[in-house]
Each structure stands twice: as structure tokens, then as C-alpha cells.
Amino acid sequence: MEILSLADRPDLMQPAIHYFWTCWGSSSNFKFYEDCILHAVQDKSRLPMFYVLWHEGNIVGSYALLTNDIISRQDLMPWLACLYVNEEHRGQGMASQLLQHGLSEAKRLGHPALYLSTDLENFYERKGWLYLADGYNVMGEAIKIYTCPVG
């Protein structure tokens, strides 16, 4: 199992775009994911960055580091977003590995902390993330913001 940056693996670009969109998108926003990811991988030293979890020749998980996760708290960054592990691979510590990789990457880029927004209950708390505040999505709905120092 490997965590791969799409900036380093252009051969995985199209399958990765489809994976992110399938996990997080809707029938009307494929172009959003495609355009975002295609333009993100042009500079390995700055955000945004997209990663996939590669296992036995398949993408089985993902995450991204973004400047903003489409949330009201524009003052915070970077954001860990799009964390996903295929259902059949859950319970094996893969999400924890992706989270740790994200923290390492944020540290490498010189950021003191990483942020995420979620509606999950008790998942990130168990991984050591701390509730920071509520933010608001584009629909005006409150969403919890968590933070974790990078090390």
C-alpha cells in the first residue's frame, strides 16, 4: 500500500479524478473536480495537492490538502479534505495513515496546523483532532471545524 501524490503520478490522473468525483461529487459537478485536480498538480511545492491510496493496483482511498474547503473560515489553512477509504478497506488503519500523511505534508510545507470540516461524530476526535469552532458551508449550514498540530 502506498500514498501517492498525483503530481508524481500523471498516469493516475484520470482514474483519480473519477475516484474523487465518485466519492464526493454529484451528477452535475464532474467538471469542478476535473478542473480543480488538473490544475492542482502543476506545482509540487504549493497547495492544492491531491493524494490517492494505492493498493494492489487500485485506488482505495484519497485525501487532498486545500487552501479552503468551501467553508466560511477563509482565515484558516491548509485544509485536509476528501478523506475517503473504500468501505471494504475500512477498519484497517488506512484512514489513520492518510491523516498522518496529510499532517506530514502540511509540516513539510511549513504549516503549523491542519484543519478539516466534517459532520462526522467522534471519528476525528479518536484520531487526536480537536474541535475548534463551527463554520458555515455555502448553504449557510453549520459544520464542525477540527484542527491538529503538525508535530
Results as ranks from 00 to 15, higher is better:
Asn29Tyr: 08
Thr22Phe: 05
Asn122Phe: 01
Pro48Gln: 08
His111Glu: 03
Gly57Ile: 11
Gly135His: 02
Ile70Glu: 13
Ile145Cys: 09
Thr147Ser: 12
Asn86Val: 00
Ala16Tyr: 05
His18Asp: 14
Ile59Trp: 13
Leu83Gln: 10
Leu99Pro: 01
His89Asp: 06
Asn58Trp: 06
Ile37Asn: 08
Tyr131Met: 12
Tyr51Phe: 12
Glu87Val: 07
Asp134Glu: 15
Cys23Met: 09
Ala106Tyr: 01
Ile37Ser: 06
Leu132Glu: 04
Gly151Arg: 11
Val150Gln: 08
Arg90Val: 02
Ser96Met: 00
Ser104Pro: 01
Tyr33Ala: 09
Tyr33Cys: 08
Val138Thr: 13
Tyr146Asp: 07
Gln100Glu: 14
Cys82Gln: 07
Cys148Ile: 04
Pro15Val: 14
Thr22Ile: 04
Asp69Ala: 12
Glu141Gln: 15
Ile143Arg: 15
Ser117Cys: 14
Ala81Met: 10
Thr118Asp: 11
Leu103Thr: 05
Phe32Met: 09
Arg90Cys: 04
Glu2Ser: 15
Leu6Gln: 02
Asp119Leu: 07
Cys148Gln: 11
Arg9Gln: 12
Leu120Gly: 02
Tyr33Arg: 11
Ile59Lys: 11
Trp54Met: 10
Arg73Leu: 05
Ser26Trp: 00
Ala7Thr: 09
Tyr63Ile: 00
Gln42His: 14
Arg108Gly: 03
Gly91His: 05
Leu47Thr: 12
Gly57His: 12
Tyr63Trp: 01
